[in-house]
Write a protein that binds this DNA or RNA. Structure first.
Length: 817
RNA sequence: GCCGAGGUGGCGGAAUUGGCAUACGCGUCGGUCUCAAAAACCGAUGAGGGCAACCUCAUGCGGGUUCAAGUCCCGCCCUCGGCACCA
């Protein structure tokens, strides 16, 4: 038989008609399995790199279906947001049009690859019946004080003309357009994700089936530090400087205090200073420095003395207060105690401005104050020059001093996180409007539930100006206050796309639901997602936001599971010529020509076969040819089977026995590959081996119809998650009426795996010298005796007497002299 | 700088977790078919040496443990990813 595109179309239509992929969320007795792929962002058509995600997801869901699970595999569109809007502007069309066009195109692509989705559950985040509920979740957060507006220094991309979340700034540049991100003081909307920092950290331990590296990335991003806050009173002033430190054991070495340039106490400290002008100039200079300037190695530590001294609360020592450019305003209290002897950053600063350096922690092999940066000891040790705490270890010192601070009310134990609140407002058009109204007399008012959704109005101009385009739509802005009925105006910012995608996996369960975002009881039955599949680029952004929203919804009693995604698989990128595929590099591999030349199954097979799915892989067109030849070879067996007239004997002959063993060992290994961490590449190669062995038997004309039939059937059953169209066709040719995906995954018959005779390696002093066929019933002594009688072994031994022999059952025998 | 992943033929990559390194595929070479080419099929293919049977050396480098190491331990080198003055 030949494989042609007709076969693809034929089976795609059949699957649709027979609703093979439409799950019943209620009343199905089979165990549920929710297989979710990260939904596509429709800003352009898909290439083979994208295809990997969907092909893997499809292979998993088809496999699980054959294993007897009630599988849910939905799809939708992450359809709001900057990339679509930017593309639309570039092509001079409305973002909606652009997006819907792409959705149409991608849908065709996914269908032509035979990816089996539950299409009636399709959702798009840009549709009012979806974003109504995004707004609803916003208001739920708002009512709990977890969505709030504040004036803050925020990341601003001047090319995209909008603010960005911390997570969307990569090395000081905009994640989307790579232009320099600057800091602006703006009034913006935030989600209080920091309230969940500890739980987001703790619950990583519930995620046993997540890749370790993703959990580590989240852990680092949350960045928990345990320490103390300590008060330094300033001389001749009412000001008290509160510093956070994780190394309170070094307090006696604090020779100066450092303030960030935004510290609120600065104005008070310098108000009478003769150098006021100079200090203000310095602050202005630092404030205007771009973020990326701090990332380069040559970044110069600079500072200015305030003229004030603070008193060390432990020894009363006078400590100069400086303002320094290396102290971050957004972390801790924005003020630190600086210990140059035990912190390289403080050391560099101290050297530059000739400040004191006092050793207070003695390392095993070092002593004395450091003279160069490399001598700075940052580890723990024994406390010295530390008054009553001398002789304690750092660990004991931390405890003792923390107690001392609490008792004397000059400080307290404290915890800090690097995680910042999630900035969710955007000054752009293509997003869900933030459902808030401003009233002169009532202030900030939530849009009542009955008025949702706040529909995104049609506009003609959506070019970014730094103001949301909605600002110019009078009809949209002008409204009435829901509380007092007076004239009021609407919030004009839209929400970050990551808000849309932080809950979509809940909507799939009841996508048409009109009364609520999701039906709790159904969601509780179907979630958490059993298998989530997507790119590692979402390790922090989407996956952290979703975990946060999930926890929030649990706290509201709306769902009963703490984590949304039980198991996570992050597939590697497909690269071409060593580079990520991109239009600008001109190295995009579009799937159309592959489908045209070879058909969908060959592309699917190659994508799965090209390498371990979690690793990056280099696309090579030649690899497709290999998969094509393999399928041709396998299909030829179907014809050979039809023509085979050789009836099997009642007892299988030697080759048939071997083939039966191979069939069942292949089932066993392929199943193990799929059950483990989706080792599709080895699964495919094992089926290739099986086919190779069938050919050996056929060439020797030793295979009867019965065994050959079993082999052919097994080959295509095992391949069916990977090459579904071909497998369906063969399944039909073999006389089955039902879809192969309604049949069950083959089972191993252990009987066939039993061997009477095996070949083992015979080693002399660890080196293989010969092979030996043994009967599995033989004892060690018998094997040893046989091995010693081999010519090659005698030669290798050269008359030396064996000292001992190691026999590993059915594997090797090693003779040691 | 800190954290993580990895380094195996000409290439993509296997190796049941300490037990026959290089499965499977690509590529290359040789053969069959053909006027010829392509396709297809069959065979060979880690490196070096030898007429040969065979021998020696090979999993980034250097040590170690073991009857046995790609796999375990110690010390380096290199590549890729994340974070980046977080006190």
């Amino acid at each position: 038989m030949d494989y042609s595109k007709k076969i693809d179309k034929k089976w795609q239509a059949r699957w649709d008609k027979e609703k093979v992929f439409n799950a019943k969320t209620q009343g199905d007795r089979r165990p549920k399995y929710y297989c979710l792929v990260m939904f596509p962002y429709p800003s352009s058509e898909l290439h083979v790199g994208h295809a990997r995600n969907y092909v893997i997801g499809d292979a998993v869901s088809r496999y699980k279906r054959m294993q007897g699970f009630n599988v849910l595999s939905p799809i939708g569109w992450d359809a709001f947001g900057l990339p679509a809007e930017n593309q639309a502007i570039k092509h001079k069309i409305h973002p909606r049009e652009w997006t819907l066009k792409n959705i149409q195109r991608i849908k065709e692509q996914l269908k032509s690859w035979g990816i089996g989705y539950d299409w009636p559950r399709e959702i798009a985040t840009c549709q009012p019946d979806y974003y109504k509920w995004t707004q609803d979740i916003f208001l739920k957060l708002y009512s709990k004080g977890l969505a709030y507006r504040k004036e803050a220094q925020v990341n601003w991309c001047d090319s995209c003309k909008t603010v960005l979340a911390n997570e969307q700034v990569v090395a000081g540049k905009c994640e989307r357009c790579s232009s320099e991100v600057i800091q602006k003081d703006l009034r913006q909307w935030f989600f209080k994700i920091t309230d969940y920092a500890q739980r987001l950290l703790d619950d990583l331990s519930l995620l046993g089936d997540w890749p370790e590296r993703v959990k580590l990335m989240q852990e680092n991003w949350i960045g928990k530090s345990v320490g103390v806050e300590i008060n330094f009173p300033v001389q001749d002033s009412k000001t008290i400087l509160n510093c956070f430190t994780t190394r309170i054991d070094t307090i006696f070495g604090a020779t100066f205090l450092g303030l960030s340039w935004e510290h609120p106490a600065i104005a008070e400290l310098i108000k009478d200073s003769p150098n006021k002008k100079e200090i203000e100039l310095f602050i202005e200079k630092v404030r205007n420095q771009p973020q990326s300037a701090r990332l380069i190695d040559s970044f110069q530590k600079q500072g200015v003395f305030t003229g004030k001294f603070a008193l060390n609360p432990l020894n009363g020592k006078k400590t100069p207060v400086w303002i320094a450019n290396y102290i971050l305003p957004g972390y801790g209290t924005g003020a630190i105690m600086c210990v140059p002897a035990h912190d390289t950053r403080d050391f560099e600063f101290a050297v530059q401005y000739k400040l004191d350096i006092v050793e207070v922690i003695r390392a095993k092999d070092k002593s004395g104050a450091p003279k160069t940066v490399s001598e700075v000891y940052e580890g723990e040790g024994i406390m010295v020059n530390s008054g009553q705490f001398n002789g304690l270890s750092s660990e004991q010192g931390k405890e003792k001093i923390s107690d001392y601070l609490q008792e004397n009310k000059i400080g307290k134990r404290a915890v800090n996180y690097k995680l910042r609140d999630w900035l969710v407002s955007r000054q752009r058009y293509w997003g869900a409007p933030i459902p808030i109204i401003y009233c002169e007399s009532c202030g900030e008012v939530a849009v009542p539930d009955k008025d949702l959704p706040v529909v995104l109005p049609e506009v003609k101009e959506f070019l970014p100006t730094g103001q949301s385009p909605l600002t110019y739509i009078d009809k949209f802005i002008k409204t009435k206050c829901p509380k007092c009925g007076k004239a009021a105006r609407r919030e004009t910012d839209t929400m970050d796309t990551f808000v849309d995608s932080s809950w979509y996996y809940l909507r799939y369960i009841s996508p048409q639901e009109k009364k609520t975002a999701f039906v709790s009881s159904d969601v509780n039955n179907w979630l958490p997602v059993d298998q989530y599949i997507g790119g590692v680029e979402h390790a922090i952004l989407h996956l952290m936001y979703s975990r946060f929203i999930n926890k929030f919804l649990m706290d509201q009693g709306l769902i009963d599971f703490p984590e949304p995604f039980k198991k996570l698989f992050t597939q590697g990128m497909i690269v071409k010529d060593g580079n990520k595929m991109s239009k600008s590099k001109g190295n995009v591999v579009a799937p159309d020509y592959i489908i045209d030349k070879y058909g969908a199954d060959i592309m699917r097979l190659y994508i799965l076969f090209m390498g371990p799915p979690e690793k990056d892989a280099e696309w090579q067109d030649e690899g497709l040819g290999g998969c094509f030849r393999f399928i041709q070879r396998a299909l030829k067996l179907v014809d050979m089977l039809a023509e085979c007239s050789q009836n099997s004997q009642s007892q299988p002959n030697v080759q048939e026995k071997e083939l039966l063993r191979k069939i069942h060992s292949t089932i066993k290994e392929v199943t193990r590959d799929l059950e483990g961490n989706f080792q599709f590449n080895t699964a495919v190669s094992r089926v290739m081996e099986l086919v190779n062995q069938v050919y050996k038997g056929i060439n020797q004309a030793t295979l009867g119809k019965e065994v050959l039939g079993q082999a052919v059937k097994t080959v295509f059953l095992l391949l069916s998650p990977f090459t579904p169209h071909i497998s369906e066709e063969v399944n039909q040719i073999l006389g089955n009426k039902e879809s192969i995906f309604k049949s069950s995954w083959p089972l191993v018959n252990e009987e066939y795996l039993k061997e009477e005779e095996v070949e083992i390696a015979v080693l002399v002093n660890g080196k293989v010298r010969d092979k030996l066929k043994i009967d599995v019933s033989w004892s060690k002594q018998e094997v040893e005796k046989k091995a010693l009688s081999l010519e090659k072994i005698k030669n290798a031994l050269q008359e030396k007497a064996p000292k001992k022999t190691i026999y590993i059952d059915r594997k090797i025998v090693n003779i040691v002299t």
